[in-house]
């Protein structure tokens, strides 16, 4: 019902009937989602609904057990080469930043370009500095992650993901672990990224951000996508009861 339109060449992520079990627990119960190049998709839903597990199947941090996931024409199977190819196309930002604490900020960013893309160090560092400039903290390049504030760490994490020049960015609740005054600085970076034409899937409860930036918003519950529309439609005319209830909870508190 959500993805009735046919898949086209423009579709960079295609998920068809994706299922996953954790032991006996059926986490993903047939997720269908197609994302176009340059599209910004926001996913929201209650905790434990499987939304986080779902976006982690897209870069194979979690394995799906049934269904099909195709990223930029490459199908995700157990083939390690496919997984490596897909991962180098996708950048991911985590709720808890997950910066490498033993490496300086600049080395966090250049690590993958040097070891995976085999760039010379000078080129990697030049691009890393440009990215730090872009996220607004070039002066932190030679510090260790532990010396930065949460908002700064998350911006470094975004720069680290961008350093691989990915076609897709996944955000898994990027602002949930941040103090209120730091949320804005991270959302600003993400907003700029969205306007630059990056394909993004964002799990967030920042509805202001979603309203402004997303092309489509999806409501995720109990392992399936319940419904999804353009922002205006999503907030004004949610069709399902569950969606209405959820929206009333997060919009009125």
């Amino acid at each position: 019902m959500v993805n009735e339109r046919l898949e086209t060449r423009d579709d960079i992520i295609i998920c068809r009937d994706v299922h996953k079990w954790f032991g006996d627990f059926h986490v993903l119960r047939g997720v269908n989602l197609t994302v176009k190049r340059g599209e910004v998709v926001v996913i929201c839903g209650p905790s434990g609904s499987g939304k986080s597990t779902f976006i982690r199947t897209i870069n194979r941090l979690e394995e799906h057990q049934r269904g099909t996931i195709i990223v930029d024409g490459i199908e995700l199977t157990n083939d390690i080469r496919n997984i490596a190819a897909v991962r180098s196309e996708i950048g991911m930002v985590f709720q808890s930043f997950n910066l490498f604490p033993h490496l300086r900020v600049i080395d966090n960013i250049t690590l993958a370009p040097i070891w995976v893309r085999k760039w010379p160090k000078e080129k990697a560092e030049k691009i890393a500095m440009e990215l730090l400039e872009r996220v607004g903290i070039p002066e932190q390049a030679y510090k260790y992650p532990g010396q930065l504030s949460g908002g700064q760490q998350q911006r470094v994490a975004i720069a680290r993901a961008l350093a691989m020049q990915p076609k897709i960015m996944l955000f898994d609740e990027p602002t949930s672990a941040l103090d209120p005054e730091m949320i804005k600085e991270v959302l600003d970076v993400m907003r700029e990224l969205a306007h630059s034409g990056m394909t993004m899937i964002v799990i967030t409860h920042e509805m202001g951000f979603a309203k402004e930036v997303a092309h489509r918003i999806f409501f995720f519950d109990e392992g399936v996508i319940v419904e999804g529309h353009a922002p205006e439609e999503f907030f004004k005319n949610p069709r399902e009861e569950r969606t209405k209830l959820f929206l009333s909870q997060i919009l009125t508190h």
Partner: peptide
């Protein structure tokens, strides 16, 4: 999260171990 972040940026299994996990 360190393993996940390392794999997400595209490091191979040995690189994850040698560059991220073992040093820590």
């Amino acid at each position: 999260g360190q393993y996940e972040a390392a794999r997400a940026v595209g490091l191979s299994g040995w690189q994850v171990m040698g560059l991220i996990v073992l040093p820590q």
